[in-house]
Amino acid sequence: MTDAPAAIAHLIDVMARLRDPETGCPWDQVQDFATIAPYTIEEAYEVEDAIAQGSPATLLDELGDLLFQVIYHARMAEERGWFAFADVAGAIADKMVRRHPHVFGADETRTADQQIAAWEVQKASERAARAETGTLAGIPIGLPALTRAAKLTKRAGRVGFDWPDAASVLDKLEEEAGELRVEIQKAPQDLDPAAIRDEVGDLLFVLANLARKLDLEPEDCLRGANRKFERRFGFIEQTLQYEGKLPADSTLDDMEALWLEAKRRERAGG
Rank of each mutant, 00 (worst) to 15 (best):
D3F: 05
P5Q: 05
H10R: 15
H10L: 14
L11R: 11
D13V: 02
V14Y: 06
V14C: 04
E22M: 06
G24E: 09
G24W: 07
Q31F: 01
D32K: 07
A37Y: 14
E43I: 03
E46I: 06
A50T: 02
A50M: 05
A57E: 09
L59F: 09
L67I: 02
H73A: 13
A74V: 00
R80G: 00
R80M: 06
W82A: 10
F83K: 04
G90R: 05
V97H: 08
H102P: 01
A106C: 08
R110M: 09
T111A: 02
D113Y: 01
I116A: 10
W119M: 11
V121Q: 15
V121A: 13
S125N: 13
A128R: 15
G134M: 08
T135K: 09
L136P: 07
I141F: 07
R155M: 15
W163Y: 13
S168N: 10
V169W: 02
L173N: 04
E176T: 12
G178Q: 03
L180Y: 14
R181D: 12
Q189D: 15
L191I: 13
A194F: 05
I196H: 02
A211H: 05
P218R: 01
R223A: 05
A225I: 08
E237L: 04
E243P: 01
G244L: 08
D253G: 02
D253M: 07
M255F: 04
E256K: 14
A262E: 03
A268L: 14
